[in-house]
Structure formats: structure tokens, C-alpha cells
Design a protein around this nucleic acid. Structure first.
Length: 564
RNA sequence: AGGGGUGUAGCCAAGCGGUAAGGCACACGACUUUGACUCGUGCAUGCGUAGGUUCGAAUCCUGCCACCCCUGCCA
């Protein structure tokens, strides 16, 4: 796939970047669109990352280009090898295929070092002996210019020797830095002689102890983009202030064309979702959740286990758009809409009774087959067999002795349709010793079987059920959002000093038993179902042969309320 | 001697001089053997604000106002 494989004339730009790319292509500035997916390998991805990756991968794809997965691993103190594998798996799940997996530390550090030497020779960089504290102090403030480092005017020869000595390990950690010689009085603080290399004897998860000097983001990122051939470096607006430095390094460190362009999109924030590596880590460490892939977690492995689909998340992200402010906050319901939308199309329907109430059909003996559509919205989905028999279970909430207005479920003396089977009438309520309802005695009405009903009886309600002979016990895990609904912005609450324990919804995981139709016995991990009239569920990886576990992905919408 | 951004509905968002798309949410209807889905209807005389240019302005000009981000040897 390359630019030649797409018809430029037919591409309809959907945002300013795409308009710019189109113009670049037409002007001959761009001959190939290359983007990159540059995670710092220091944690699992969460929903927010999907926006960045969707933009980078889909923009490239739209123009017949490609995207590299590049570990932005220039800070050994925060990174380790645990994550690259998870990124590959996440990307595969999302349906994005990187051109190649690259470890910047291995692939580019030598070349980047050479660039640094070249810049020293050109007088664009110098070795500075100021301590971190002194650098900070001489940087000036938001409104005042900084002052030049006393080491700023060393000769290129002296700088080169010093830099080589830095690399050779002749100086103590933190004692010197290589700095870009830009402008200490620049109104943009990022331009005030940013640090290019620091000295730190750290073991790197990829390159081991090869280096004791490490390139810093403002320098290393544009150089990696250049070395890789990236044409559009798409990042979030947190880096907008850095665009100037980015361009400066591209010019002074690289100096060739075509030069990569940095463009920025809004960060995506979802209400009531806790993000922030350190907080998530804390919850994992303290055992509040079962791990990084806990179904209540916003990590990709978490939402995947929960039952969210990649399509849903991508549709959601696309619906939010490119964004104009640094951060865009949308309600959780917006995400959930796309989850339901996709699941409605793909989830197989099944009947599962979560809170059983026994019903005996007094005028019926034996059992008979009934058919259930696997998906009424998809005629190709087929049907599956279930059973109607003398003893069945219905949902407790589907029977009421004191029905509210418009309650069109089962009442004493009332009728209701059993999904796929007959209309039944409740004639009697049988109580146990404690005065609790033990079971219901109902009669089925002949001639009302689903699909062949010629009785003319009008029945307002239809409820789901399972028959005793056709059911087995499963485990269902119901979730509440991890964060209490009143904390729309958990990170802000945390910043305001609210303890994390206060943010957490108590009992966000409730495990219970349920009766599922036998059809579900063959369900495999990650299979997705709609438990009719309840919600969407998927098989959890904790399932064993004798114990199927279903995670509640999301409930069905429920517009019914008794008072309407 | 600060710099960089952004203001269109409750939340996102299109719009690029020709009379305010779309989605979410919400409300009300219709349909329904899932109170789901689907469908219909409603939801900004208004685009931060004050002026100006124009036959015509969310779009162009000027002034003002508000909010967000930036002073790591993190990315």
C-alpha cells in the first residue's frame, strides 16, 4: 500500500490535517504519508490512547501510508519490557497493523548521538555544567527572560571533548548536560536552551548498560521521527507549546526535507472514568481490582474483558472528532451508546434468569421445543432451540402482587407471554413456611404458541424464562462503574485532595448465580451475548469447564418506569 | 517581555460571505413475542461580547471579555 494505490481525487478530507495533507501531496511536499504510534513503554493503554492511535493509523491508511509502532524508550527509570507485548495485542484487537515494531533505543540512539555531535560542531549545542537546580533558576519565569549559562560560549572543540567524556562515563550523574543553544530570552520557555542529554547511570530494559547519557524528549522525539521517515507526527495538544522546539530540532539536527510536521489533536477525557497510571497502579497493587485487565478498569485489556468491542470504541472516538481545545470531556453515556450499538448487531440472544422464581404450569406435562432467534435484527443469524416444560423459572421482578400502573408483566390472575412459547395465566401463589413466595402456579393457554398463535388473545407483556430441564447454573458478574457517579472528574477530585477510597463505588463487583439455557454451554471466552431484556454479557477468562462466568458488559436501555 | 491555544445547545461537533449539519443526552409519540432495537417529532431567531464592512456575517475587520495549557536533567 502506498500513495500510488489511492485515488487522491476521491479523498474527502475530514479535518484540517487531512486538508493539509492533501495540499502537501498536491504540492509535491509529501510523497508518502507516514505516521507513528510512539508509546512510552511504562504502562497499559487505556481508552484515551485509542484516540491517538486511531488518528495516527487511520490518517496514514486513508492516504495509502503506514504507521510504525515505536517504543519511545529514552527514560530507563520509567520503562520496562513488560508492555511492548501488550501494545501489540491491543493494536491487533483494535485492528491496526503497524508496519513494524521499533525500539527507539536500539534503532536510533547511535544515529541520534551522531546528530548531537554534528550539532555541537555546528555550534548548535553545548555542554553545560549547571546543576538541575541552577538550570531551573536561570530559566527565567513565564514573564521574565532567562539568563545565559556561563558555559554557553565554550568552543565546539571543547564541547565535543566534554560530550564524548560524558558518553564515556567520566562525569557523575546529573553533573552536566548537553543543551541546545537557542535563546534563553525566548518568550516560549521550551526554547530556552532545552536539555538534549542528561547523565544517568541506569540500566535500560533493551540496551542494558550501553549508555550513561540519555536523550530528552524534545530532542529525541523529532529526531526519531526524522530517522524513521515520519511525515506527520500527530500528538495531543499538550505538546502544542513544543512545536517550535520540534521544528527547531528538525531544522538544526536534521536539516533535510521532507521534514516531519507535528500536528496536535485534543486529548479525550471521559466523565467518571479514572485515568492516570499512578492511580490505576495503586488500585491494582492494593487489590481493589483483580489486575490491569479487571473488567471495571479503563485499560484496553480491561474493557475488552468487560465485553466492549474495538469497533465500539473506535466509533466512539471518531464521533468525538479531532477537537479544538486541549482536552475534550464527554459523558460516559456517549461511549456506552456505541457499545450498545455494536453489541446489538453482533450479540447472540439468549434467555438467562438472573433472579429466579419458580413457576409450575399446572395444566401441562412433559416438554416441547421452542425456537429463539439468535438475533432478530440479523436474518442471517439463525435460530436456536430452547425448551418449554412444566417447571420453569422466570425473573422475580417479572411478577408482582401489587403491580404499579402499566405493569405489563405477570400478576395474580393476569397473563403474560413467555418469549418463544405460550401465554400463561397466573392462578395461584404458593408460599413457604416463612410467608415468602415459593412458586407460582400458572396455566398455559392452548393455541397461543409462538408463531402459531390463532387465539386472538391480546397480551401486553412478554417475559423471558428458562425451563428446568433446559437450564444450567452459571456465574454472573455484575459491575457498577468503579467511580461514584457524582465524581465526574476523578482526577480533579484526586488533585483536590479527595482520597481515592472516597471516589470508589462500594460493591462495584457483585457475583451471583443464574439459570442459563443450555444453548450457552458451548460459549467460549469473549463470546458476546444479549441476555434478553437484561443486557449484554460476555464470557470471562476465569471460566472453567464446570463454571461458566459471564461479565455484564452493559445493561439494555430501559425506558420503562412505573410512574409514566 | 510573557508565550501558546480556545469560545457554536446540557455534552461533543460541522460550518471556510448566501440565511445554524450530525451525534450523545433529554422529552413525547409509533411499532414491538426483548418496556431492547427501529422509526417519527421536539430540542440555538442563535454562534463569548460590543462595534464596523456588506444587499447579506458564526464566517471578514477592530476593540473588549472569559476559560485552558506552559517555568522536569518526564514523555
Amino acid at each position: 500500500m502506498s500513495l500510488k494505490d489511492v485515488d487522491i481525487e476521491k479523498i474527502v478530507p475530514e479535518n484540517e490535517l487531512e486538508e493539509e495533507i492533501l495540499a502537501d501531496i498536491k504540492a509535491g511536499v509529501t510523497t508518502e504519508v507516514i505516521t507513528r504510534c510512539p508509546p512510552e513503554p511504562s504502562g497499559y493503554w487505556y481508552i484515551g490512547h485509542v484516540k491517538a492511535w486511531t488518528i495516527n493509523f487511520e490518517t496514514a491508511k486513508k492516504f495509502g501510508g503506514k504507521t510504525y509502532l515505536r517504543m519511545d524508550d529514552s527514560n530507563p527509570s520509567k520503562e520496562d519490557g513488560e508492555y511492548a507485548g501488550s501494545y501489540m495485542a491491543d493494536l491487533e484487537w483494535l485492528g491496526f497493523k503497524p508496519e513494524k515494531l521499533i525500539y527507539a533505543s536500539e534503532a536510533y540512539f547511535d544515529a541520534i548521538y551522531e546528530i548531537a555531535e554534528k550539532m555541537i560542531k555546528n555550534g548548535d549545542a553545548y555542554v553545560c555544567d549547571l546543576s538541575a537546580e541552577e538550570v531551573s533558576k536561570t530559566r527565567g519565569t513565564l514573564t521574565e527572560p532567562g539568563t545565559n549559562s556561563p558555559y554557553r560560549n565554550r568552543t565546539p572543540e571543547e564541547n565535543l571533548q566534554l560530550f564524548r567524556d560524558m558518553k564515556a562515563g567520566k562525569f557523575a550523574d546529573g553533573s552536566r548536560t548537553l543543551r541546545a543553544k537557542i535563546d534563553m530570552a525566548h518568550p516560549n520557555i521550551n526554547m530556552r536552551d532545552p536539555v538534549m542529554y542528561k547523565i544517568a547511570r541506569l540500566h535500560h530494559y533493551r540496551v542494558g548498560d550501553k549508555w550513561c547519557i540519555w536523550p530528552q524528549y524534545d530532542f529525541v522525539h523529532p529526531m526519531e521521527d526524522c530517522l524513521e521517515g515520519t511525515t506527520y507526527s500527530l500528538c495531543d495538544k499538550g505538546f502544542q507549546d513544543h512545536r517550535l522546539v520540534y521544528e527547531w530540532f528538525v531544522k538544526h539536527g536534521w536539516g533535510k526535507t521532507p521534514a516531519p510536521k507535528q500536528r496536535e489533536f485534543s486529548r479525550l477525557v471521559i466523565e467518571n472514568i479514572l485515568s492516570g497510571k499512578r492511580y490505576l497502579k495503586q488500585l491494582v497493587a492494593s487489590g481493589v481490582v483483580s489486575g490491569w485487565d479487571d473488567p471495571r478498569f479503563p485499560t484496553l485489556v480491561g474493557i475488552r474483558r468487560r465485553g466492549y468491542t474495538a469497533k465500539a470504541v473506535k466509533d466512539f472516538v471518531r464521533s468525538v472528532g479531532w477537537g479544538s481545545t486541549i482536552e475534550v470531556t464527554v459523558p460516559l453515556s456517549a461511549l456506552e451508546h456505541y457499545v450498545r450499538e455494536d453489541l446489538n448487531k453482533i450479540a447472540t440472544r439468549a434467555m438467562v434468569v438472573l433472579d429466579p422464581l419458580k413457576v409450575v404450569i399446572t395444566n401441562y406435562e412433559g416438554a416441547e421445543e421452542i425456537e429463539i432467534d439468535n438475533n432478530p435484527n440479523d436474518e442471517n443469524a439463525g435460530k436456536h432451540k430452547a425448551l418449554f416444560s412444566k417447571e420453569i423459572y422466570i425473573e422475580k421482578e417479572d411478577f408482582s402482587l401489587n403491580p404499579p400502573p402499566k405493569y405489563n408483566r405477570l400478576t395474580l390472575g393476569g397473563i403474560v407471554r413467555l418469549k418463544g412459547a405460550y401465554i400463561i395465566r397466573c392462578n395461584n401463589v404458593v408460599y413457604d413456611k416463612n410467608g415468602e413466595i415459593d412458586h407460582l402456579e400458572c396455566e398455559y393457554i392452548e393455541g397461543t404458541k409462538s408463531g402459531q398463535d390463532n387465539s386472538g388473545i391480546k397480551c401486553k407483556g412478554t417475559i423471558h424464562f428458562v425451563s428446568l430441564e433446559n437450564s444450567f447454573e452459571v456465574t454472573v458478574r455484575e459491575f457498577k462503574n468503579l467511580i461514584k457517579s457524582e465524581y465526574k472528574s476523578p482526577s480533579k477530585a484526586l488533585a483536590d485532595g479527595v482520597p481515592i477510597s472516597e471516589l470508589l463505588e462500594p460493591n462495584s463487583l457483585v457475583e451471583k448465580k443464574a439459570f442459563a439455557e443450555n444453548f450457552l454451554k458451548n460459549a467460549k471466552v469473549e463470546d458476546k451475548f444479549q441476555f434478553m431484556r437484561k443486557g449484554y454479557y460476555c464470557v470471562d477468562k476465569d471460566s472453567t469447564e464446570n463454571n461458566l462466568i459471564f461479565n455484564s458488559t452493559i445493561s439494555l436501555k430501559d425506558s420503562w418506569s412505573p410512574n409514566k
